[in-house]
Design a protein around this nucleic acid. Structure first.
Length: 971
RNA sequence: GCCCAGAUGGUGGAAUUGGUAGACACGAGGGACUUAAAAUCCCUUGGCCAGUGAUGGCCGUACGGGUUCGAUUCCCGUUCCGGGCACCA
């Protein structure tokens, strides 16, 4: 029988649906395992070969765990709300709901072809009311909670009200009450500087802005003060940091999150400043520093331009200069400020007093100090901070070195290593507090920091303080396609609509396009007001400010719906709760999460925050949502370019062009007979190797139909190629459907895994796929041979039951021999170990080798084939099912048992020589198992690898152990 | 600038965590079958040198050192590529 993958895959796809093979329920008798993929945005372009990479990897693991007896949850759904979905809808001029559902259907069709073990009965879509009801619910819970610093967890807001009342701080006025609580709620309305993107018509979260432009589309972003819903993510900074220690994620992604959270330990120190008259104390401000040890090197102070302190300290003489400077700073965009680091600043006219030395130091305003971090004010130590150094050089301010041997004539010495000096220069330069002076000379920097902190704390000059860089997440988007906020405004005070009225459904609008002014599209909805009597959405014209109120016009951002979806998969149809106690108790959290590392500072932080909040509420049962994380790499595409001679409709073969390096553009530019030729993308379907099919490209678009193609002397048109991200706009997309059509899903799965380590990015290259296809054919042929033979021997067995003489003969036919068992167990060991560490690319060669070896051994034993079919089932499920059935099994291969590896079959070819001498034990070279000790010893002495080593030493003992036991023996 | 991860044949990549470097696949070359092609199967394939040949020798895991009987693996330094953060005091 031939390997007919089309029929096989079609047949098993239908059977899996009919038999509900992949549906799971909470089964208390079995151990759970939760595998999850980051669910996709259903974008308009459909799936390309890069998308399934992670899904295949996790599917292999899910199937493997299932074969090991675990109850595996492996769900899939769609992240359907948010900017990308809406941008696509706008581009195609359709309603986002329509495009989203069309795209979802297309995704589903494509996914189904690849043979995933998803439990589709648990599918979620973030844009469905039954789903986003719980997104809104969680938001309301956040609104009604505050973060208790002492307990380090979320608490009901009522507790805080009680506390305020007890302390007599509870205002009578409703508006004041609301304002006070707003400063503590986890979801709060805040007047903050936001990243405003005029082109997208919305604000963006920090992680959605890259290099001063929007992540989506690359549009400019400016800073703007707006009233927005925010999530107090920063309150969870320490827990987000601590949690990283408990989870099994790659070091690089943990590092990225650590950077993003940006914890820094330091001290806040109170600085008195002189009043305008210059005589008495005008007030105090607080600075933050991580280098408390450098107090003796302070030569000036700097305030952030946005800081309120600037107004307070500025003297009348400097007022004009300061105002002008602030105006200049405000006129600069975020991008300008990021790129241009030239030194700017202005003197305020005021002086601060260094509390340690008593010195009077000038106070400056400069944009290099940020208002949003620390206290927005710093003490400047030019000798030991490069930014302060640049500033001091520019304004000709003194520089006092504090570390022995540090040369600060050319640059600052920023390292935290060395011995402190000049601290103080002389005793009277250190102010006396309660009879004690701070003296740091001779100490290491680390000791000096600790000593200064102690001194500052003890003499009440300030306090020890930990700062985090992590900012609160801005949660409002001036967009249509997102979850509506379940909020209405009663006389300007936000109110939650009652929980039992959720979900608050997204209204229909005529125009869903964003506006440049920031007026959200929901403002176009006629029916968008809340009636507190009927407790329903009513027409806006009915607003009476007594019982009917306007609803919030903003919608939630993309990450709202994706922050707790893994919990919903546990119990997707529950109308009573986000997830039931029972389901959450059983499934706990995600054991294996697979997705791209580009979500490191977005989704993966928000999700962890969201889960921690739900954990505080008792809804989620684990503090961390994703125990193990695997980041699959990107699959890149080979883009092809044809070259059009500028100003003509001539396209020239790449090998006929002259190349020149352009310094300004930092890339090659090309010329044909003196005229520059510009690269134009050509669809890769029209290219074989690097040769263009000219007839095809003429049919492609009108611009090529009339074009002239200048071929090389071989009569070929050569394209140039580049490896780039796979994208529709680069015409380098390879569609998985085509691969499935040509080779089948099993080959696609195998090949994607074979391409290289799962975590690495690599270009898609079809060349190697034949190897995988050939292997499956070989495996199929081997299996067919065994199945035929074993059926034959079963038949003989029946016919000859009475004939005892034949018994030994039959045993030979059905009992595997030593060689065959060795091949099998080598494979079991390799594949099992590989799957555990996601090194699938090395398991596939193991299958190839085993198949070849068994073919050479002319193996006919089903006792060998059966476990092999189970081993291959996670990788190539369709072929495995077909063979499993052919072997006479009535149940799915999914319900089989993962084979157990037995050392005894492998011992002989993994022996090593152990040499013990002079009380030490070392190991040496491999020897055949049947070599006796004398032979080994003789060989060891004569062996060229270790002659020097063994010279003059006495070999006390030669032990033969399996290779993998060596480390155990050595211990 | 700071932090993290890398660098192995023509290519993707192996090497059991210090023990025969280059598994497996692709590509290339040669051969078998075939009228022919496709398909399939077999052989060769890191470099250099010697030999008719079986074979033997030397050099080789970015570069330079070190530890070790032995280093792709561990340590130090350099170069290059990728990722993250980037006036965060």
């Amino acid at each position: 029988m031939e390997y007919n993958f089309r029929d096989i895959e079609k047949k098993w796809h239908q059977r899996w649906v009919a038999m509900q093979t992949y549906q799971v329920t909470e089964d208390e008798t079995r151990k759970k395992f939760y595998v999850l993929n980051m669910f996709p945005y259903p974008s308009g372009a459909g799936l390309h070969v890069g998308h399934p990479l992670g899904y295949i990897a996790s599917d292999i693991y899910a199937r493997y765990k299932r074969l090991q007896g675990f109850n595996v949850l492996n769900p899939m759904g769609y992240d359907a709300y948010g900017l990308p979905a809406e941008q696509y809808a706008i581009q195609t001029g359709q309603h986002p709901e329509k495009t989203t559902f069309d795209n979802i259907n297309r995704y589903r069709e494509q996914l189904d072809k690849i043979g995933f073990s998803f439990d589709w009965s648990r599918e979620v879509r973030t844009c469905e009311p039954g789903y986003y009801r719980w997104t809104q619910w969680a938001f309301q819970k956040m609104f009604n909670s505050y973060f208790d610093e002492e307990l380090q967890k979320a608490q009901p807001i009522e507790k805080l009200i009680e506390k305020f009342k007890a302390e007599g701080q509870w205002p009578a006025d409703e508006k004041e009450q609301s304002d006070l609580l707003m400063q503590h709620r986890i979801a709060y309305l805040g007047e903050t500087m936001v990243n405003w993107c005029p082109a997208l018509g919305t604000v963006l979260a920090n992680d959605e802005v890259v290099n001063g432009v929007s992540e989506r589309g690359g549009y400019p972003v400016e800073q703007k003060k707006m009233r927005q819903w925010c999530l107090r993510v920063s309150a969870y900074s320490q827990r987000l940091l601590d949690g990283l220690e408990t989870i099994d994620w790659s070091e690089s992604i943990k590092e990225t999150q650590k950077n993003w959270i940006g914890r820094s330990e330091g001290a806040e120190i109170e600085i008195p400043y002189l009043s305008a008259s210059g005589e008495e104390e005008g007030g105090r401000f607080t600075i933050f520093t991580t280098r408390a040890d450098t107090m003796f090197g302070v030569t000036f102070f700097v305030l952030a331009p946005e800081s309120e302190l600037v107004d307070q300290v500025t003297t009348p003489e400097q007022r004009v200069a300061v105002d002008e400077y602030i105006k200049y700073v405000k006129g600069r965009t975020e991008r300008e400020r990021m790129i241009d680091h030239t030194v700017t600043g202005v003197f305020t006219g005021a002086y601060g007093i260094n509390p340690i030395t008593g010195d009077k130091c000038p106070i400056y305003v400069a944009e290099y100090v940020l208002a949003g971090y620390g206290t927005g004010a710093i003490m400047a130590v030019p000798a030991h901070d490069s930014r302060d150094y640049a500033f001091a050089k520019h304004f000709d301010l003194p520089i006092i070195p504090l570390v022995e041997g540090a040369d600060v004539s050319q640059e600052s010495y920023d390292a935290k290593e060395g011995i402190v000096m000049n601290s103080p220069v002389s005793e009277e330069k250190s102010v006396l507090y309660d009879g004690e002076r701070l003296i740091l000379n001779g100490k290491t920097i680390k000791e000096a920091i600790a000593e200064t902190k102690r001194f500052v704390k003890e003499h009440k000059l300030g306090r020890v303080k930990v700062n985090y860089r992590l900012r609160d997440a801005i949660f409002s988007r001036q967009r249509y396609w997102g979850e509506p906020f379940p909020v209405y405004y009663k006389h300007g005070i936000p109110q939650m609509i009652p929980e039992e009225c959720l979900p608050l459904q997204l209204p229909e609008v005529d125009k869903f396009l964003p506006t440049a002014t920031g007026e959200p599209p929901l403002g176009n909805a006629t029916k968008w007001a809340w009636d507190t009597v009927s407790r329903s959405v009513v027409d806006c014209s009915a607003i009476d400010n007594e019982t009917i109120f306007p609803l919030e016009l903003n919608t939630m951002p993309g990450f709202a719906g994706s922050s707790a979806y893994y919990l919903r998969y546990m119990d997707p149809h529950n109308d009573e709760a986000l997830v039931s106690e029972k389901a959450a108790g059983y499934w706990q959290n995600v054991d294996l999460y697979v997705g791209g590392s580009e979500h490191a500072t977005g989704h993966l932080i928000y999700s962890r925050f969201w889960n921690k909040f739900l954990f505080d509420l008792g809804v989620s049962k684990k503090e961390e949502p994703f125990q193990k994380l695997i980041n699959q790499g990107m699959i890149q595409g080979w883009s092809s370019f044809v070259y059009r001679v500028r100003g003509t409709n001539k396209f020239v073969s790449f090998d006929l062009l002259e190349e020149q390096y352009d310094d300004a553009k930092k890339k090659n530019i090309y010329f044909y007979e003196g005229t520059e030729a510009d690269p134009v993308y050509a669809d890769i379907s029209m290219v074989t190797g690097n040769v263009l099919n000219v007839d095809k490209i003429r049919e492609w678009t009108p611009e090529f139909r009339e074009a002239e193609f200048i071929l090389n002397q071989n009569g070929q048109y050569i394209v140039s190629q580049a490896i780039e991200k796979m994208s529709k706009s680069k015409y380098n997309v390879v569609n998985p459907d085509d691969i499935c059509e040509h080779y089948g899903a099993d080959t696609l799965r195998l090949y994607e895994m074979f391409l290289g380590p799962i975590e690495q990015s690599k270009p898609w290259d079809v060349a190697g796929i034949d190897g995988c296809f050939r292997f499956l054919k070989k495996f199929w042929n081997l299996a067919q041979g065994i199945i035929e033979q074993s059926n034959l021997s079963d038949l003989n067995n029946l016919n000859n039951q009475s004939n005892l003489n034949n018994q030994s003969n039959l045993n030979n036919l059905s009992t595997p021999n030593k060689e065959e068992l060795k091949v099998l167990h080598k494979l079991i060991k390799k594949v099992t170990e590989d799957i555990e560490v996601f090194s699938y690319n090395t398991s596939i060669p193991a299958f190839m080798i085993a198949t070849n070896e068994l073919s050479q051994l002319k193996c006919t034993k089903r006792a060998i084939l059966e476990p092999m079919v189970v081993l291959i089932a996670p990788f190539a499920p369709h072929i495995a099912e077909e063979l499993w059935e052919a072997l006479g099994h009535k149940t799915s291969v999914c319900d089989a048992q993962w084979p157990v590896f037995e050392e005894k079959y492998l011992v002989e070819d993994t022996v090593k020589m152990m040499v013990a001498f002079n009380g030490k034990t070392r190991f040496g070279i491999d020897f055949p198992a049947d070599a006796d000790n004398a032979t080994i010893e003789a060989a060891a002495r004569g062996h060229e690898m270790t002659p020097k080593y063994l010279e003059g030493k006495q070999i006390v003992k030669v032990i033969i152990v399996p290779k993998r036991m060596i480390n155990l023996v050595l211990k």
